[in-house]
Design a binder for these strands. Structure first.
Lengths: 121, 121
DNA sequence: TAAATCTACAACCAGATGGTTGTAGGTTCT
DNA sequence: AGAACCTACAACCATCTGGTTGTAGATTTA
């Protein structure tokens, strides 16, 4: 809880990304789908451990699984990556607004009609 | 440990961001510096708890503290936010290049599961 | 059919996390 | 000087996390 609205989805996604193995799984499955077993062979840990990592990514919406015969293929979900990026962009926007506000105050800009906007990237 | 090891900083930053209280602290201190006590008054938890959250953000490089008399002012560090965003952009870039990468991977290693252990990075 | 493979989940364990209270020392205000 | 305030850290606690092994069922292959 804490801090009112707080999107739990963002929490889960950021937390899921805060692990190098999971980031690698996502990186690889963004390129092409792989089975959990195929993924497990890439890392120095048990199948069960990799299976858990995939579950964490799945709960965060960063990957999806599609059953194909006896194996289930893990697909990276670029849209969720973009959603996380958007959360960071929001922080950047907060910072930018603060700079714009400072600029207005310090410059005592005679141009009242154009709110901020004179700040590029 | 596991895998890369080069991106422990990214780990710490993403982990630090995966908490709504900490994201709010960062949001607020990106606008203007606040003392730890001033921050603590904004959240329904003890000073010590907020102090710990600030420490996590500080270890991640997302905020810095500057002593001002008896209080220490917490400043949000936009550059670190941008560094995290860059890590996500790298994932997006992987996705954009997926066709080319897939071609290369399949050319090198036609076997689906790839029993070898090629580590990334 | 039998063996091999793949997924899934349970039980267990050590260490990290997120909160608490308490204590101590430095700085500012009367 | 003394009170009030702020930071810092230690000890403690419950829960979560990231790994392990073991087991079971479904599907594919020999």
């Amino acid at each position: 809880m804490v801090v009112g609205s707080a999107d739990a989805a963002t929490d889960r996604a950021l937390r899921a990304l805060a692990d190098p193995t999971r980031r690698d799984i996502l990186r690889v499955t963004l390129v092409r789908p792989l089975s959990v077993s195929a993924l497990a062979r890439r890392y120095p840990m048990s199948f069960a451990a990799v299976h858990k990592h995939v579950s964490v990514l799945e709960d965060a919406g960063l990957v999806t699984k599609r059953r194909r015969g006896r194996e289930s293929l893990v697909h990276g979900e670029i849209d969720r990556v973009r959603a996380v990026r958007a959360a960071l962009d929001a922080l950047e926007q907060v910072w930018r607004d603060r700079v714009a506000r400072m600029d207005r105050i310090l410059a005592e800009d005679p141009d009242e009609g154009a709110p901020d906007a004179h700040h590029q990237r």
